[in-house]
Each structure stands twice: as structure tokens, then as C-alpha cells.
């Protein structure tokens, strides 16, 4: 009898959790309709990025020399650029570049920033917290674009260096959020209770600290995606981001501006893709914030 009860409890708990998750999703979809549309757009961009080689009719750098600056038509949906490259294909591959840079940047800087924030907020004695936060302050004190230009100019134009520059720029954003949350969590009664029950630091962080970080970090991540997309494009636009002939929306914009009067499609489509992606990430970020933070719903 006892065994039966235990088995029932074991099987119903995950089922309940799954049901709860599903209901949360539906609640998100029901209450954040605009954000849901944004999420769908983002998913489409990710799918386009992953399957670019299958979806693109031409290679990203393939030059169709019989169709240089060809206007959009049934064959070249978005037209071609000044070297005869199919802009539709380059926009798809550009999504790959932009999302690769954004995801890598946000994941790595998220990990580094969160670790710094947790260290600073949970363990932070007087000197460690001060040291880490002054370093973060120093990075934040320099205007973002200036810092990016400096780093990109010093490191040189490449995808790897663009990612490094962007990581340095946005680590403080994650660090600040994580630190603030950890300062709050470590004083919570349930943490004190866990500590009194003999739970180790790692267990406390994993069971109580990190779950509390999840909601604010997911919102920050979504908003930073948009910022990283813009920053990467700005660097490429200025010629110190992704090097030619890599397909990147920023570089395509930069190359297209020279032909704005005679081939506006060179700017319109990568610019449109960038605008749509940034808008989608911003709207999703706002929606997630509203959904995950009960205070903002009041």
C-alpha cells in the first residue's frame, strides 16, 4: 500500500509540473499576444539562419556576374548587389551571422556576467565586491559605441573579434542584474533556513539562487539580443565588424548605402530584416518582463 502511494506520488509530480508549464505557456500566449508574434518572428529568423544553405537559392558570396545590381524580380526576390550576389540569399546567411554573433555573445557574456554578479552579490565581502563592481563601472562609464569602436579597431575586423568586443561591452549588464538579485536572495528567510539545515553553498546557489535569477536574466537576455544585433551591425556598417565578403546585415547596409539612389533594394532588405529582428527581440523582452515580473502587471 505504501509502495503504491509512493509510486503514484512520483508519477503525478512531473505530470503536474508539465501541466503547470503548459498552462504558463498558454497564459503567456493569451496575455502577451504581441510578444508571441515577436517570438514567432524570432523563431523564423532562427530557422532561416540554421537552414540558410537549404533555403537560399545561391551561396552567400556567389557572384552572378550577368546580374549585377539586378532589381528584385521573380528570379532574384530581393535583387542582387554590386558584385551580383543574391540579396535574398545574403539576408538569410546574414541572419546566420547575426544570430551566431548574438547567441555566442549573449551566452558567453551571460555566463561570465552572471558568475561575476553571483560572486559579487553572494560572497562579496568588502574588497571582492568593490573590486568587481568598480571594474564593471569602468566598462559602463565608457560610451558603448566608443568602447566597441576602440576594441574592434584594436582587435581588427573578424567575427571572433566582434564577439569579443561585444562580450566585454555587455558583461556588466548581466553582472549588475545577477548581483542585485543575489543581494536580495541571500537575505531571504528560506536561504537562512537552508543554511541552518546544513545546506552547502553550492546547493543553496543551485536550488535557491539561480532559479531566482532566471526571470530577470531571461528578460535582460532578450533585450540585449536586440542591442547586440544593432551593435554588430553598427560595427560592420563602420567597416570594423565582420570582414568582407561575409554576409552580415550591417555590412550589407554599409555596402548598399553607396548605391542608395540607383539600387535601393541593397539597403531596404537587409535594413528591413535588421529592423524586424530588433523590434521582435525588444517586444519579446517587454512581454517577458510583463509576464515574469508580477509588479509590472499592476
Amino acid at each position: 500500500m505504501v509502495t503504491t502511494t509512493t509510486t503514484t506520488a512520483a508519477t503525478t509530480a512531473p505530470a503536474r509540473t508539465a501541466t503547470w508549464r503548459r498552462s504558463r505557456w498558454w497564459e503567456f500566449v493569451r496575455t502577451q499576444r504581441l510578444a508571441t508574434v515577436a517570438l514567432v518572428i524570432i523563431v523564423l529568423f532562427v530557422v532561416a539562419a540554421i537552414f540558410a544553405p537549404l533555403l537560399a537559392p545561391y551561396g552567400a558570396t556567389e557572384q552572378i556576374r550577368t546580374a549585377i545590381r539586378h532589381a528584385p524580380d521573380g528570379r532574384y526576390w530581393f535583387g542582387t548587389d554590386d558584385l551580383g550576389r543574391d540579396i535574398y540569399s545574403r539576408v538569410l546567411y546574414g541572419a546566420r551571422t547575426s544570430i551566431l554573433i548574438s547567441v555566442t555573445t549573449v551566452v558567453v557574456s551571460g555566463a561570465i556576467g552572471t558568475a561575476i554578479g553571483v560572486l559579487s552579490g553572494y560572497f562579496g565581502g568588502r574588497w571582492l565586491d568593490s573590486l568587481l563592481q568598480r571594474i564593471m563601472d569602468a566598462i559602463i562609464a565608457v560610451p558603448g559605441l566608443v568602447l566597441l569602436l576602440f576594441l574592434a579597431a584594436v582587435l581588427g575586423p573578424s567575427i571572433r573579434n566582434t564577439i569579443i568586443a561585444l562580450i566585454i561591452l555587455i558583461v556588466p549588464a548581466f553582472s549588475r542584474v545577477a548581483r542585485g538579485e543575489m543581494l536580495r536572495v541571500r537575505e531571504e528567510p528560506y536561504v537562512e533556513a537552508a543554511r541552518a539545515n546544513g545546506c552547502g553553498t553550492v546547493r543553496i546557489l543551485v536550488r535557491h539562487g539561480l532559479p531566482n535569477l532566471f526571470a530577470p536574466l531571461i528578460v535582460v537576455t532578450s533585450l540585449l539580443f536586440a542591442g547586440v544585433l544593432i551593435a554588430e551591425s553598427a560595427l560592420s556598417f563602420l567597416g570594423i565588424g565582420t570582414p568582407p565578403p561575409t554576409a552580415s546585415w550591417g555590412r550589407m547596409l554599409s555596402e548598399g548605402t553607396r548605391f542608395l539612389e540607383i539600387a535601393p533594394w541593397m539597403v531596404v532588405f537587409p535594413g528591413g530584416a535588421l529592423t524586424l529582428a530588433v523590434l521582435a527581440f525588444n517586444i519579446l523582452g517587454d512581454g517577458l518582463r510583463d509576464f515574469l515580473d508580477p509588479r509590472s502587471r499592476r
Binding site: 558570396t61 556567389e62 557572384q63 554590386d82 558584385l83 568582407p244 565578403p245
Partner: peptide, 10 residues
């Protein structure tokens, strides 16, 4: 010249 380099590259 950068465009020329990309042409040569191709």
C-alpha cells in the same frame, strides 16, 4: 579596391 579583391577571391 575591396570589391576588386572580392572579385579576385571568387
Amino acid at each position: 579596391v575591396l570589391r576588386e579583391a572580392q572579385w579576385v577571391q571568387q
